[in-house]
C-alpha cells in the first residue's frame, strides 16, 4: 500500500539558485526603497516585499508547492490569527480615549471656562508636532 506513494519531491537545483537570486534582488529592492520617504507607504512596501520573499522561501525552499491542503491550512491559520490579534488590538488603540482630559472636558469647562477654551486653541495651533508630546503626557 505504501509503495505507490512517493516520499517527497525533487526539484532541479537550478530552481533553488533562481530563488536565491530572486531573494537577493528583493533584498536590494527593499533597501533601495528605504531611501525614499513615502510616509506610511514605506511600511506597506517593506511588508509587501518581505511577504514576497517569504512566499518564495515557503513555495520553493520549503517545498510548500508540493504540500497538501492540511499543511497549507497550518500555514495560513497562524497568519490569520496574527492579523486578528493586530486587528483587534488596533481597533482598541486607534479609537481609545487616551487622555482623561477629553472625557472630563465638560467638568473643567464648567469650573474654569476661560482656561479650557485657551487650552483647546493651543492644541489646534501646534498641530502634528505637539501630537506626540500630548500622547506622551496622557500615557504617563
Amino acid at each position: 500500500m505504501g509503495h505507490d506513494r512517493k516520499m517527497g519531491h525533487v526539484q532541479s537545483p537550478k530552481v533553488y539558485l533562481g530563488v536565491l537570486l530572486g531573494l537577493f534582488v528583493l533584498t536590494v529592492a527593499t533597501v533601495a526603497v528605504s531611501y525614499l520617504d513615502l510616509g506610511v507607504l514605506n511600511d506597506v512596501v517593506a511588508i509587501a516585499v518581505a511577504s514576497c520573499k517569504a512566499t518564495l522561501v515557503i513555495l520553493f525552499f520549503m517545498h510548500g508547492r508540493f504540500e497538501d491542503r492540511i499543511t497549507w491550512a497550518f500555514i495560513w491559520y497562524p497568519l490569520v490569527l496574527v492579523g486578528l490579534l493586530l486587528g483587534g488590538v488596533f481597533l482598541d488603540y486607534a479609537n481609545r480615549v487616551t487622555s482623561m482630559q477629553d472625557v472630563m472636558t465638560p467638568i473643567s469647562a464648567v469650573e474654569t471656562a476661560g482656561e479650557a477654551g485657551d487650552h483647546k486653541e493651543e492644541k489646534a495651533d501646534d498641530g502634528e508636532e505637539q501630537k506626540d508630546e500630548s500622547q506622551d503626557e496622557s500615557n504617563y
Partner: peptide, 13 residues
C-alpha cells in the same frame, strides 16, 4: 528574519 530586517532597520522615515 526576512520580516524583522525591514521592520527594524529600514523604516527610518
Amino acid at each position: 528574519w526576512i520580516f524583522l530586517f525591514p521592520l527594524l532597520y529600514l523604516l527610518r522615515h
